[in-house]
C-alpha cells in the first residue's frame, strides 16, 4: 500500500529531489515553499524537481547521490555532507559524523 502512495503522489526520493524537499518539509516548511527553496538551491525550476531525467543530471553534477551507484561517486554520509552544505541546513547525522572525525562544516 505504501508503495502505491509513493508512485501515485510521492516526490520520488533520490530518483528526483524527494529527499531534499522532504528535508525542508521536516523543518516545518509547507510543500510549495519547500519545493521553491530546493529549486533555488539547485538552480533549477520547481517543475524539474520531480523530473527523474533532469534530476539525475543535477544530482550527478552536484555529486549528492543517485539511485544507481557509480565508481567514486558520493553515497550515504558523503552525499549527505554535500546536501547539508547545498541546502544550508544542519543534518543531525552529519553533525555527529563530523564531530566523530574531529571536523566541523
Amino acid at each position: 500500500m505504501a508503495f502505491m502512495h509513493e508512485m501515485a503522489a510521492g516526490m520520488g526520493g533520490i530518483r528526483t529531489a524527494g529527499d531534499l524537499v522532504a528535508r525542508m518539509v521536516m523543518k516545518g516548511m509547507k510543500i510549495d515553499a519547500a519545493k521553491e527553496y530546493v529549486a533555488d538551491k539547485l538552480g533549477c525550476s520547481v517543475f524539474d524537481l520531480s523530473d527523474s531525467a533532469r534530476m539525475k543530471e543535477i544530482r550527478e553534477s552536484l555529486d549528492i547521490g543517485t539511485v544507481v551507484l557509480r565508481p567514486h561517486a558520493s553515497n550515504g554520509m558523503a552525499a549527505k555532507i554535500k546536501i547539508a552544505e547545498l541546502l544550508d541546513i544542519k543534518i543531525p547525522s552529519v553533525e555527529l559524523f563530523m564531530k566523530q572525525i574531529g571536523k566541523s562544516l
Binding site: E6, A8, A9, G18, V21, A34
Partner: peptide
Amino acid sequence: NVSVERGHEGITT
C-alpha cells in the same frame, strides 16, 4: 490506478 497531476507531488513519510 491514478496519480496526482505533474507538479502536485508531496513527500511521503
